[in-house]
């Protein structure tokens, strides 16, 4: 039986394919969800402040320096999981952290903050979910990193755990802060 070399062609083609798939795989940053909003300005809004209902918050309140915007709700168990980390960030860094209280009840939300402590500079009441729709939020929690001019530079879906903060969000924040300083 002579060995027919052309029979190796399918194997070779497949090998090439695997190399590309593996390389393509390496390209993907799994934490970077495709969002049409990345590098787009944060959407305009005009919504109530959770603690001072007579004060209206707008986009201008979020701009000026690099900041985090966290979408949260009392009905969201994962928000409770990330809560200690958010508290730590607000205590240990001077990074402003804003909350978007998403599809929630104001009474419950205030009670929740009183019970678990408030990490936010202020929280925006998004009880109709309009801002969340503009942001393309899949669910809570989600965290956006904004640069000094109010442009969304990063989006994280799911709870901010210590690892997520250390390995994903903090580098982005430091990079952006470095850019605005320089």
């Amino acid at each position: 039986m002579t060995f027919n070399k052309s029979l190796l062609i399918p194997l070779g083609v497949f090998g090439l394919l695997v190399v590309f798939l593996a390389l393509g795989f390496r390209l993907q940053d799994p934490h970077l969800l495709p969002s049409v909003l990345i590098d787009k300005p944060f959407p305009e809004f005009e919504l109530q402040d959770l603690r001072q209902p007579d004060q209206l918050r707008t986009l201008a309140d979020l701009s000026g320096e690099v900041s985090l915007v966290n979408v949260w709700a009392t009905w969201c168990p994962n928000c409770l999981i990330e809560h200690p980390e958010l508290l730590r960030i607000s205590r240990e860094t001077d990074l402003p952290l804003y909350g978007v209280n998403y599809n929630d009840d104001n009474g419950k939300a205030l009670g929740w903050l009183a019970r678990h402590e408030n990490p936010y500079e202020f929280s925006i009441v998004d009880d109709k979910g309009t801002l969340a729709i503009d942001l393309g939020v899949y669910g809570a929690p989600e965290t956006f990193v904004l640069d000094a001019s109010g442009v969304i530079r990063f989006r994280h879906v799911g709870p901010v755990t210590p690892e997520v903060w250390r390995e994903t969000l903090l580098p982005v924040v430091e990079h952006l802060q470095g850019m605005s300083d320089g």
Binding site: N4, L7, L8, P10, L11, F14, V18
Partner: peptide, 17 residues
């Protein structure tokens, strides 16, 4: 994929002659 497809194509190259 590598195991199944690669394995079967290797078998093919080896046996189909």
């Amino acid at each position: 994929l590598v195991l199944v497809i690669g394995g079967s194509l290797t078998l093919y190259a080896w046996k189909a002659s």
